[in-house]
C-alpha cells in the first residue's frame, strides 16, 4: 500500500482531534457528551463561508497568498467564525444546557443536545440546502515529498495550524490559572468551589475553547473536502471515539486519539474501500470500551 495514507490520516486526524478537544472538555468539565458538537463545526464553517463571501462582495476578488488556495479574507473570516461559534455555544448553554444541568440529571442534558443537534443541522439545511459547497474550487498541485507521498501547500499549512493550536491549548491548560481551574473543576467540582473557583466562568471558557476549535476543524474540512450541513454530524462518532480512546479530559489524549483514528481510517480506505470508513471509529471505540475504557491517558473515576 502507498504511504500516502499517512498524510491523509494526519489531516483527517487533525480535524477529528481538534473537534475531540471540545468533546473531551465538555465531558470532563460539564459532565455530558454533547451531541451538538458536530453541528458547532458545521455552523462555524458556514459562518466563515458567509464572511468570506461578504468580504468578496466588498473588496472584490482578492488574490490568494501563494502557494495557498486562499487569501487573507479566509483568515479574517476564520477568526470571525471562531468567535461566532463560541458565541453560539455560549448561547445554547445559556438557553438550554445550563438550565437542564441545574436540574441535576446529566443524561437529560445529553438528550437535549441530541435535539439541539437535529434542530441546528436542519436549520442549516433549510438556509443553505443540502448541496455541498466550497471555499475555493481551484485545484492545487500536490508536491511529491518522497516515499510516494504527495502533499499540497494547503495541507502543510493546516497541519501546522493544528500543531500550533494544540500546543496553545495544552499550554493554556497546564500553565495558566484558567487552565488549572479547568483541571480542578473536572477533578473535583465541590473542592473547586471551595478554593474559590467560579464555576460559571470556567464553564464559559470551556464553551469558548470548544466552539472555536470546532470551527477551525470545520473550516479544515471545508478547505480540504467540502462544506455540507451534515459535515459535523458525520464527524461525531470519530470525535467521541477519539476522546474516549485518548482518555476523557486529556487534551493530548484527544489529539492523539484523533490522529490514531484518522490514520486507521485512511489505512482502511486504502485496504477495504472508502465506503466502510465510518465503521473504523466504531470498531476502535468498541475495542477501547472492552479493553481499556479509561483510554490511553485516562484515570479511573473516583
Amino acid at each position: 500500500m502507498s504511504l500516502q495514507f499517512v498524510i491523509d490520516g494526519l489531516l483527517t486526524g487533525s480535524m477529528i482531534g481538534l473537534g475531540a478537544i471540545g468533546v473531551t472538555l465538555t465531558y470532563s468539565i460539564l459532565r455530558f457528551s454533547n451531541f451538538a458538537h458536530g453541528d458547532f463545526m458545521a455552523w462555524g464553517t458556514y459562518a466563515t463561508l458567509a464572511v468570506v463571501s461578504a468580504i468578496g462582495a466588498t473588496f472584490g476578488k482578492v488574490a490568494p497568498i501563494a502557494p495557498l488556495s486562499f487569501g487573507w479574507p479566509l483568515l479574517v473570516a476564520l477568526v470571525v467564525g471562531m468567535a461566532f461559534t463560541a458565541l453560539l455555544a455560549l448561547l445554547l448553554d445559556r438557553v438550554l444546557f445550563s438550565r437542564l444541568r441545574s436540574q441535576g440529571q446529566a443524561i437529560i442534558v445529553v438528550m437535549a443536545s441530541f435535539g439541539a443537534s437535529m434542530a441546528l443541522r436542519s436549520l442549516l439545511e433549510f438556509t443553505f440546502t443540502s448541496r455541498p459547497t466550497y471555499f475555493s474550487r481551484a485545484i492545487q498541485i500536490a508536491m511529491p515529498v518522497g516515499f510516494g507521498i504527495r502533499i499540497t501547500p494547503d495541507q502543510i499549512a493546516l497541519l501546522l495550524l493544528t500543531a500550533v493550536l494544540v500546543l496553545g491549548v495544552h499550554l493554556l491548560m497546564t500553565r495558566t490559572q484558567t487552565g488549572r481551574a479547568m483541571q480542578a473543576l473536572s477533578q473535583n467540582a465541590a473542592l473547586a468551589r471551595i478554593v474559590g473557583i467560579d464555576v460559571a466562568s470556567v464553564v464559559r471558557v470551556t464553551w469558548i475553547i470548544g466552539g472555536a476549535l470546532a470551527c477551525v476543524a470545520g473550516v479544515m474540512i471545508g478547505i480540504l473536502v467540502q462544506i455540507r450541513p451534515f459535515m459535523g454530524f458525520d464527524m461525531l462518532l470519530p470525535m467521541f471515539a477519539a476522546a474516549i480512546l485518548g482518555g476523557i479530559g486529556s487534551i493530548p489524549g484527544a489529539v492523539l486519539g484523533g490522529l490514531i483514528i484518522g490514520l486507521a481510517e485512511a489505512g482502511a480506505v486504502q485496504l477495504i474501500g472508502a465506503e466502510w470508513r465510518a465503521a473504523v471509529s466504531f470498531i476502535i471505540l468498541m475495542a477501547v470500551l472492552f479493553v481499556r475504557p479509561i483510554g490511553l491517558f485516562g484515570v479511573r473515576e473516583r
Partner: peptide, 23 residues
Amino acid sequence: FVPQTENIFQLMSVEDNLKVACG
C-alpha cells in the same frame, strides 16, 4: 475551608494544588 475528605486535587501536582488556590 478544609473539607474532611477529598480535600486535594489528586491528579494535580502539589505545586499546582497550591497555585490553583491563588486565584
